[in-house]
C-alpha cells in the first residue's frame, strides 16, 4: 500500500465556525492549562509538608493579585474541563450529537462553568471577608 500524502481530517476550514468548536479546542487548552495548575497544587502540598515558612511563602504568592488571577483562571479552566468532560462522557454513549441538543449543551457547559466559578469565588471571598 502506497503511503501517499492523504488529506488528514478534520478539514476545519470548510466548516462554519460555531461555539461547539470553540468549546472543543478550549477543552484541550484548559486540559494543558490544568497541567500547569496541577504543578501549583503539588507545590502547595509540598510547601505544606516542608514547614510553616515554606507554606507562608506559598500562601503569600497565591494570595497576591497575580496569584489570584492565576487561581481564577485555574478555577474556570477546571470547571469548564469538568462540565465539558461530562458532556464528552455522554457523547461516548452515542447520545447528544444532534445539533439542537449540542446548542443546548453548549450553553449548559459554558454557563455552568461560569456559574460554578462565580459560586466558588463568592464563597471563598465570603470566608476571608473580602
Amino acid at each position: 500500500m502506497a503511503t501517499v500524502n492523504r488529506p488528514l481530517s478534520p478539514h476545519l476550514q470548510v466548516y462554519h465556525w460555531g461555539l461547539h468548536m470553540t468549546l472543543s479546542i478550549l477543552h484541550r487548552t484548559t486540559g494543558v492549562a490544568l497541567g500547569v495548575g496541577t504543578l501549583l497544587l503539588a507545590w502547595w502540598l509540598i510547601s505544606l509538608a516542608s514547614g510553616p515558612e515554606a507554606f507562608a511563602q506559598a500562601q503569600v504568592c497565591l494570595s497576591s493579585w497575580l496569584g489570584r488571577v492565576v487561581l481564577l483562571g485555574f478555577t474556570w479552566s477546571l470547571m469548564l474541563h469538568l462540565c465539558n468532560g461530562i458532556r464528552h462522557l455522554v457523547w461516548d454513549t452515542g447520545q447528544g450529537f444532534e445539533l439542537p441538543t449540542v446548542r443546548v449543551t453548549n450553553l449548559l457547559v459554558l454557563g455552568g462553568s461560569i456559574v460554578l466559578t462565580l459560586i466558588i469565588w463568592a464563597v471563598g471571598y465570603g470566608l476571608i471577608g473580602g
Binding site: 478555577t75 477546571l78 469538568l82 468532560g85 461530562i86 464528552h88 462522557l89 466558588i120 464563597v123 471563598g124 471571598y125 470566608l127 476571608i128
Partner: peptide, 20 residues
C-alpha cells in the same frame, strides 16, 4: 475522568472551605 468527577468536586469544595 469518571473517578475525577467526584474527586474534583470534593477537592474544590474543600479548598474553598480552606481559603484564609
Amino acid at each position: 475522568a469518571i473517578a475525577l468527577i467526584p474527586l474534583t468536586v470534593w477537592l474544590t469544595a474543600s479548598i474553598v472551605g480552606l481559603v484564609g
